[in-house]
């Protein structure tokens, strides 16, 4: 029993990211509306950010800003007192990337809407078929 509680307490954070990620993938696969798909994509990327940030955590450690700043000759910072800064740096990049992807995806969604007058996949498919029929 105790082992299970330890297991749960040690891993629950990672399960959160998995649940979020699966919600995102489900939305991309199953939803018919293109905007919902794009939101699913964004949730999916956010889940990965949560995962990385989780790897940065350390018990009893503070944010990675050295408190004394300049002139702290003498005593140097100890790694155990500060959380791991690297995943935060990486995720700053990933956040920016996901914002950029979202922007381009929305742009393309606008273009698709301008073309077909709809964002529902099946309606778009219908109108593509109708146009292909009209060509012949």
């Amino acid at each position: 029993m105790n082992e299970w509680i330890a297991f749960l307490a040690g891993k629950f954070n990672y399960w959160g990211f998995i649940v979020l990620m699966m919600i995102g993938i489900y939305a991309i696969i199953a939803k018919k509306n293109l905007i919902k798909k794009i939101i699913g994509m964004n949730i999916f990327q956010t889940a990965i950010i949560l995962f990385y940030v989780s790897t940065a955590a350390k018990r009893d450690a503070g944010i990675p800003i050295i408190t004394h700043g300049h002139g702290m000759s003498g005593h140097s910072a100890r790694a155990v007192d500060y959380i791991n800064p690297l995943p935060h740096v990486l995720m700053l990049t990933a956040i920016v990337v996901s914002v950029a992807t979202l922007g381009v995806a929305l742009t393309l969604a606008v273009k698709v809407y301008r073309q077909y007058g709809s964002l529902e996949e099946d309606e778009i498919a219908d109108s593509i078929r109708a146009r292909a029929g009209g060509d012949q």
Binding site: A9, G10, K11, F12, N13, Y14, S54, T55, A56, A57, K58, R59, D60, A61, A79, V80, N84, L86, P87
Partner: peptide, 11 residues
């Protein structure tokens, strides 16, 4: 474990 100060990323 979550928050383990001895995990590889932390060390």
């Amino acid at each position: 474990d979550f928050g383990d100060p001895l995990s590889p990323p932390a060390s």
